[in-house]
């Protein structure tokens, strides 16, 4: 049996219960399918008609956000606890550029980073080419790439949590694989784990179609 914790706003669909148990486990999808068949109105408030989790509904499996695990394929052990929580960002559009403008040191802002895309567990930033970022030899400096990777992770964590909050970099490790000359760099930070106090991310940096650098990072959520 799997226990499903129901948020206050949806309890009217289950006669006021704060938790229900369903006879399904294995994957989160199997658990939600069982929720659908027993309480279709509850089910369609969690997933849309194509079976996708609604953007502003978060589902935690034993305390971990399923979006940084394997989504609906996340394993659900027997007797696990699945918690449905409305995201704090519901009703608000996530504005990564506003977070960039409000929370970073002036020299980071001078990099001209913009948010291309942000999702439940990732953010992609564009680092525009500038001659000012070139080191001796004409290629983009590694310092700029590292700052972009660090910044992209802040946006990814903010997007996942529905807004900016205090956090700090604990570790950032970068490998530089190809020089970048005269091209913008797309920096994608993907969260591999978002816990209560630590977040882990993998960052890929590409220019054109070529991978130019990769990084891993650990953040402390304050």
């Amino acid at each position: 049996m799997t226990t499903v914790l129901i948020p206050g706003a949806l309890r009217s669909e289950v006669d006021g219960a704060s938790r229900v148990t369903v006879d399904a486990h294995g994957t989160l999808r199997a658990v939600l399918d069982e929720v659908d068949s027993r309480w279709p109105r509850l089910g369609r408030r969690i997933r849309d008609e194509q079976g996708e989790l609604r953007r502003y509904v978060n589902v935690y499996v034993d305390g971990e956000d399923c979006r940084v695990l394997s989504g609906q394929e996340t394993e659900v052990a027997a007797n696990a606890e699945v918690q449905v929580i409305p995201s704090v960002a519901g009703g608000a559009d996530f504005d990564g550029d506003a977070i960039l403008a409000a929370n970073f040191a002036p020299w980071v802002q001078e990099l001209g980073l913009t948010v291309e895309e942000a999702g439940p567990d990732f953010a992609t930033l564009r680092l525009p080419w500038s001659d000012k970022l070139a080191r001796e030899g004409g290629a983009m400096s590694g310092q700029a790439l590292m700052a972009a990777a660090d910044t992209a992770t802040v946006i990814a964590i903010s997007s996942a949590k529905g807004g900016f909050g205090p956090m700090t970099t604990v570790q950032l490790s970068t490998t530089f694989q190809r020089p970048v000359i005269g091209k913008d760099v797309l920096v994608t930070s993907r969260l591999t784990k978002l816990g209560r106090s630590l977040a882990f991310a993998e960052i890929t940096m590409t220019a054109g179609d070529a991978l130019v650098a990769q990084a891993t990072t650990v953040y402390a959520i304050l």
Binding site: A9, L10, R44, R45, I46, D48, R54, Y56, V57, P86, S87, G90, G91
Partner: peptide, 8 residues
């Protein structure tokens, strides 16, 4: 339309 729980 609930911004969390979708349209109906």
């Amino acid at each position: 339309e609930s911004s969390h729980f979708g349209p109906s």
